[in-house]
Design a protein around this nucleic acid. Structure first.
Lengths: 243, 243
DNA sequence: GGTGTAGTCGTACATCGTAAGGCCGTCAAC
DNA sequence: GTTGACGGCCTTACGATGTACGACTACACC
């Protein structure tokens, strides 16, 4: 007795919260059963009485993050009546993005889930509700979810995000100058764009790019909602599976 | 002599080719140094004379896949003069998608790369070339790359792709009926859309959705290229870092 | 008391990436 | 031919990981 026993009992909630905190602090690779147990002042095998295995732990972690998103978006996005669908959805997605910026590891684990949790289903149901209230047919709303993809949850897969922005910047610049002739367009773009956005760290203002893409997509959806004919060549469904 | 020595010597190319074949055959999880060595009739540590470590192996694997994409797109997409930029880019991206459909594990490893290989840089340079020839400013072309994201390379992160389409279909349907009241919009959508696309496996015709999204994005880029004012509220750069 | 039951722990195993050093065949120089 | 260096391959071993299995502990209820 004495100092002992001050440890609160384990629970699924405590395990998941500790897992999220550990990933926030030390990164996703640090989220191992042993280190998680250590944080909880417990042995690794004790965790298995609250989560079935590591996959289930990750499922739970996703659920926690998604619930955080839902809580944030409930504040931001009201019922969104009329053709306010665009503003409502935009606000919701930007709120989701804010949450994910606090958990930069979350997209990577989101993407590895094969089953969708009730929290995610509920979130998507809410998005569908916004679209329906805005006048979307179910068919178009369904396409809209595909178009938005992971952006719905507030992230895009940033391909090739450098580990260390400062160093990588210099390296890439040097490399490109060396390989100048081989990649004329990239070199040209960097010369022009990097100059213009001087002051932004690295190359791209991620927030601006996220909103630029989001607005472009919302514009496209609005055009299809009101029945504009798209300018492009016909979509051309290559393999016609519906016989 | 005799039956021995029929094994050709190892080389970086042979190692990478075997790695791709192994991932194609048994999935990404099966791609371990030991199993790869086994396929090559060699011990695991021998691989380290041709690749520095597993990360370098994955880098090489990515390079092989991207080169396959480049080869495929070189066939499909010619120089693309004039305002044919849209058709050229569309064809290129759909060719890339075809390659990635043969290597379903590739997106997952693509996303984990932190350094970009020359092959990838060259590919993006080509895409930039198409945009420039189509009349894009470097600034807008830069945004375009962000908007397209991983679609440029022919894939989108399909969130929650079920392992087994047939079984998951029944399960989800049953679950949704049970939770009917909680997710009215999703249930409504499934009732309508699933009925309409009967005959397509599972729920969504991935090829159609990919092209729908791609065309929506290309439409939006074209509108911005020719200087249409977007209909949306101003993008509203939230944090103005360029002082 | 006895007896279950749920939570925790200790041990052990298979598998992973890979560090360190040894073996062996090839080939240039003599 | 002999020798010595070297590059490619292998053996062994280490630490980390997820987790199966069984034992221990604490408390509820009879």
């Amino acid at each position: 007795m004495g100092t002992a026993q001050r440890r609160p009992p384990l629970s699924r909630e405590r395990v998941l919260a500790a897992a999220v905190a550990l990933a926030d602090r030390d990164g996703l690779d640090a989220l191992t059963m042993r280190r998680l147990a250590q944080d909880l002042e417990v042995e690794a095998m004790s965790l298995y009485h609250h989560v079935a295995n590591k996959e289930a732990l990750l499922d739970g972690v996703v659920e926690v993050v998604v619930e955080e998103i839902v809580a944030a978006t409930d504040v931001a996005g009201g019922p969104a009546t009329g053709d306010d669908w665009r503003a409502g959805l935009r606000a919701r997605i930007l709120s989701a993005r804010e949450v994910l910026l606090r958990h930069p590891w979350a997209p990577r684990v989101l993407e590895t889930r094969t089953t969708l949790s009730p929290a995610v289903i509920g979130y998507y149901d809410g998005v569908l509700g916004i679209l329906r209230a805005g006048g979307f047919s179910y068919d178009l709303a369904h396409h809209a979810l595909h178009v938005l993809g992971s952006r719905t949850l507030g992230f895009v897969q940033e391909l090739f995000e450098p580990d260390d922005p400062a160093g990588a910047d210099a390296d890439v610049t040097a490399m490109l100058e060396q390989l100048g002739g081989r990649f004329p367009h990239i070199v040209g773009m960097m010369a022009e764009v990097a100059h213009a956005t001087e002051g932004t760290l690295g190359w791209c203002d991620d927030q601006f790019e996220f909103e630029f893409a989001l607005d472009l997509i919302l514009d496209g959806l609005e055009a299809r909602r009101v029945g504009d004919r798209p300018r492009s060549d016909a979509p051309g469904n290559l393999d016609d599976r519906t016989t």
